[in-house]
Design a protein around this nucleic acid. Structure first.
Length: 551
RNA sequence: GUCUCCUUGGUCAAGUGGUCAAGACGUCGCCCUCUCACGGCGGAAUCAGGGGUUCGACUCCCCUAGGAGAUACCA
């Protein structure tokens, strides 16, 4: 049969030739070794940590090599599309430091290899589908859902592999006349690839992350063009990544099993393969089953990127965490040079992990503490104001009004060789310092059990009487020592530990009485510094109020 | 069911035939210390199981088990 005739019958409006498209999208002019990567999300509206994880790999691989990282929107499934998903994706990724060189952007499409929305690439796909048909490598299939269902149940009954292949590909060799007739009847069709593959035969590809992988050839006549005229993922991937001159295809390992299809399509079109980089997906332990499982946008709302924005994680902290799990030696590199720019790190595909990585909130928090410890008080403040403005409007005004105070608070033990590391994210930071604000202050912790109510009252009375804002740290603490000794507590904790029977407690307990009265909690940074920031008036008032509790 | 990928401490992991099997988080203990945090020191804790190959196996081969994914006109 004349395949060209069939191709023209099916796609009369597709005029361009493959050669014309090849010329339209020439090889990129990039320095040797430059990688071209892409992120190809389907615009379903949800972005979670796993997506960022992959996006960061794309971004690093490209930019580290002086290459290009572009954004292609894979919107070939109209059913799943969500309004506004693209800007949301763009802004979330931008927030976490990922920007694209070309592709979909806030201001439309940028770049010479577009369109970057698959839904706008219909003509291109049709051209190549038509080309395959004219070469006899693809064919229209008119089978109904019912017919396919029937084939499947037959296959299941006979314990055969399900799918449309070999004898089950009933429309492989429809005559031209038959096709004309069906078309005349208004029958709709999909285009299937005519697979010559055999599951007996194995092929090998080299994956940049996993090394050599071999698997059986695909024998299914997969659909490459849907009834809607849009391509399936498989076909779109092959055509787009070829025409957009992608060098490295970074994607989740869930795609490994469709590699046989992709390889087959590249071969059929006579194109070279890109370098495949199948990374792992981020996992978590399912609370119910106790098993590892892939992150799910439905079950794990706390893993959506928005969650981290709401909690007030520094974008840099999240990125830093992801880097540690993305490239195994990143952490040690960072340890060796905490100030080095991200770009100085030699990010490579072969250092990426190939087994399921569990998301570890603990680790994220630890990384975040390190990152924040390197920030200046001004940077922390600026971030907090921005965060509160966005997500905690009730705090925004309060913080803005107290910028000077906050600056001092954030500056406590900052900047030295051994900075405090107790700031994690916006929400936590505010909770951590909330006692500075009367409207958020409360006595939260119990007074130490070593001190009797009478002693507590007396400690507070004497403290209030002796308190002088002008005292330096040493003088101030000397007064506490005095009270400690006067009331029968050990001035040195060690004395108390050695002879607990000789004392009621030690200076730490006495200090904590004061600490709790002032901050409401039994642990805090240096009290003297806190008092300086808080101001004598508030200090006195709180001491007096606590004293009043024991009347 | 079939196919594929994966399997080193609680977690992230280095490791490619000969190591007392790195490091980080967490955890425990000690030190520093008025609390907390920081910091310092130290401890416990890992090669999924079984067969081979080899003088020698975490490293190579086979089997088993477990985990993950695919098996769509979803990506």
């Amino acid at each position: 049969m004349d395949h060209t005739k069939l191709a023209n019958l099916l796609f009369p409006n597709s005029k361009k030739t493959p050669e014309e498209y090849e010329a339209l999208y020439p090889a990129r002019d990039l320095p040797a070794g430059a990688k071209v990567t892409r992120l190809g999300p389907s615009p379903t509206g949800f972005i979670h940590l796993g997506n960022l994880y992959g996006a960061l790999a794309d971004e690093r691989l490209a930019h580290r090599s002086g290459g290009v990282c572009f954004l292609r929107i894979e919107d070939t499934d109209e059913k799943r599309e969500v309004e506004g998903a693209v800007p949301a994706l763009l802004s979330a990724l931008h927030y976490f430091g990922i920007d694209f060189d070309e592709g979909a952007s806030f201001s439309g499409e940028v770049g010479d290899y577009g369109p970057y929305y698959q839904s706008r690439r219909g003509e291109i796909y049709q051209c190549f589908v038509k080309h395959l048909i004219s070469e006899g490598k693809a064919y229209p299939c008119f089978m109904s859902e019912e017919e396919i269902e029937e084939i499947r149940s037959l296959q299941e009954r006979d314990k055969l592999n399900p799918g449309i292949y070999g004898p089950y590909a009933r429309h492989r060799d429809l005559s031209f006349e038959d096709v004309v007739e069906r078309l005349g009847d208004g029958q709709e069709f999909v285009v299937r690839f005519r697979s010559e593959g055999s599951p007996e035969k194995y092929f090998t590809v080299t994956d940049a992350i996993r090394g050599e992988m071999s698997m059986p050839e695909n024998q299914q006549d997969v659909v490459i063009l849907k009834k809607s005229g849009l391509p399936t993922y498989h076909f779109a991937h092959v055509v787009d990544d070829h025409l957009m001159r992608t060098t490295h295809v970074v994607r989740g390992e869930e795609w490994i099993s469709s590699l046989p299809i992709h390889v087959q399509l590249f071969d059929a079109l006579g194109w070279d393969y890109p370098i495949f980089c199948h990374n792992t997906v981020l996992m978590k332990i399912d609370e119910e089953t106790g098993q590892k499982r892939k992150l799910s946008k439905r079950k794990d709302p706390e893993l959506s990127l928005e969650y981290y924005q709401k909690e007030g994680y520094f974008p840099e902290a999240v990125r830093e965490y992801l880097m540690t799990i993305l490239n195994s030696d990143y952490e040690e590199w960072r340890l060796a040079d905490p100030e080095a720019p991200l770009d100085a790190f030699d990010f490579t595909a072969d250092k990426m992990s190939n087994s399921g990585t569990l998301f570890d909130l603990n680790k994220l928090n630890d990384v975040s503490k390190d990152v924040l410890a390197r920030k200046t008080a001004e940077e922390i403040l600026a971030f907090m104001l921005r965060w509160a403005g966005e997500y905690q409007p009730s705090l925004a005004g309060l913080m803005a009004d107290n910028s000077d105070k906050l600056l001092k608070i954030f500056d406590i033990d900052r900047g030295g060789p051994k900075p405090r590391k107790d700031l994690i994210n916006g929400r936590q930071i505010f909770a951590f310092i909330s006692y500075f604000f009367d409207e958020h202050f409360m006595i939260r912790d119990d007074f130490p059990s070593e001190c009797s109510p009478g002693d507590i009252k007396e400690i507070l009375r004497r403290y209030l009487a002796s308190y002088d804002e002008a005292d330096d740290n040493e003088t101030w603490f000397g007064k506490i020592r005095q009270i400690t000794a006067d009331l029968g507590y050990a001035v040195k904790p060690k004395d108390y530990k050695k002879n607990p029977e000789q004392y009621k407690g030690h200076v730490g307990h006495v200090s904590n009485v004061i600490r709790i009265a002032i901050t409401g909690r039994s642990s805090s940074p240096d009290l003297w510094t806190i008092q300086q920031i808080m101001g004598a008036q508030t200090v006195r008032r709180r001491i007096a109020e606590a004293h009043g509790l024991f009347d």
